[in-house]
Design a protein around this nucleic acid. Sequence first.
RNA 1: GCUGGGUUCGUAUAACGGUUAGUACUCAAGAUUCUCAAUCUUGCAAUAUGGGUUCGAUUCCCGUACCCAGUACCA
Length: 536
Amino acid sequence: MKKTRVRFAPSPTGPLHMGGVRTALYNYLYAKQNGGDFIIRIEDTDSHRFVPGAEQYIIEALRWCGIIPDEGVDENGKVVETASERHPHAPYRQSQRRGIYRQYAEQLVKAGQAYYAFDSSEELDARRAEAEAAGKTFIYNYETRRSLRNSLTLPPEEVDRLLRESTDWTVRFKMPENTVVPMDDLIRGHIEVNTSTLDDKVLWKRADELPTYHLANIVDDHLMEITEVIRGEEWLPSLPLHYLLYKAFGWEDTMPRFAHLSLLLKPVGNGKLSKRDGDKMGFPVFPLEWTNPEGEKSHGYREDGYFPEAFVNMLALLGWNPGDDREIFSMEDLIKAFSMDKVQKAGAKFNPDKAKWFNKEYLRLKSDAELAELFLPVLLDKLASGSGVPAGTPKSWGNGVPVGTPELMEYVTNVVGLIKERATFVQDFWDIAWYLFKAPETFNEKDMAKFWKEENYSLMKKAVDNLLESGIEWTREAIETNLVDYIKSNEWPMGKVMNCLRLALSGSASGLGIADILSFIGKEECRSRIDYIFSL
RNA sequence: GCUGGGUUCGUAUAACGGUUAGUACUCAAGAUUCUCAAUCUUGCAAUAUGGGUUCGAUUCCCGUACCCAGUACCA
């Protein structure tokens, strides 16, 4: 049994979008499940579309997701450039492998499976325009190649001359006429295509001495001993060509098996997910933030506050299911549960709401301490900036907790424990519980108009005075009991009195429980906030 | 246009010929609470369509519609 070897082969023409991450993920899961290797190969055979930083972005994004290659990249996340014992298949960048492809192209020509074509781009464009004008589509195939300039039509001497003198020729695959190619796909089952509908694809370009995707892909998959090719659906139409290429090289015995994944579709309307949809609907389509060469920024899941585990979990379930009702999967769980025959054939519409839901679930799974650690920088930043409150004013903090101490961490941890069920992202914590860290300065006008009436706040004041003078132990339960019992025993309207109190403490009539707020901010801070609102 | 792929509640999906077509997200209502959120309960909502095959089709076959991809010296 051969060792499973799969590869993710992105083209560094821009940031990897979430559909690409999903393809990488499925490759990774498949490899790990079978005890095999996951390889990254950079397909940069198009010199015109190279985007600086894209390659690094792709590797960093996968790393953030926990998709770590066994091969292709070294410990530092750099693409391996020279072969070694650990990386006998290096280099992993096709531009650095350019020397190896030509011989394979020539081999096919010698075997009569391919030929030299000398038509210029302009000539072909002209033919296409001509055909279009006649309401037809020009295809470079068994029919048209007889009337084009190539080694099948030109005399041998002329071919030799052009080969020597021209730098603008290509090697084209000689697609057979009217032959049915039977193929098998791990997800879609048996497929058959007649070669007459296919064209003579360019395999190698003399102009930049680089192969096209098709040649490079087959040669490298063969050389790298890839056992399964798991890739996007956009490749399905070229599968017959790839089958035929394996056959032409005589590599049928070791040909990998293929699985074509459906595409990720936009949340509303039709079509595949694009960067624009994210911008329009306010969700990221990229794992990490990306700044394009023009300086435009695109949102990233990481920067928007998603946990990588949640992102990966969500992505895994988009087009695959475990066969039961489970939804929460760690990477380990996914590796165990993944199976190709549960991968959906149809494209999956991405649902941003569900993505948020996953994050909420993962947030709850995290410990208070871990969340506090993540929240602390956000908190300190909020306190230091924007809000107009000087950093580290312990006076206004519950229990007088100063910045940078274990007491602060403990306080933040407790706050997080109280509020984490209300949040989707760590950065939500501030909006939910900012008033546990600083006193309100302004008060919600609508709530004030509704509750802040003499007949209410006078009662509230009495209840608070009673509480502060009661000498009870300052715990949530004791505070709650004291307040509720006192208000009830006087037969005061509970809602009105309580909301007046909340208004004084938090600036609004909706939010955390009164007793919770009080237990956190402490007696002194309570007194000062009450005094403040009455002083207005 | 041609070639290939696809089609179960709004969305993601389950049901490998026999179910009151299940679950999750979203949404709505109720319960709970001092409010909001959370939570719990309930509810809304689907087999694209027309023919076969079969005792019986979401499931198998064919047609139609619609969607997607490919149709480059891009991947």
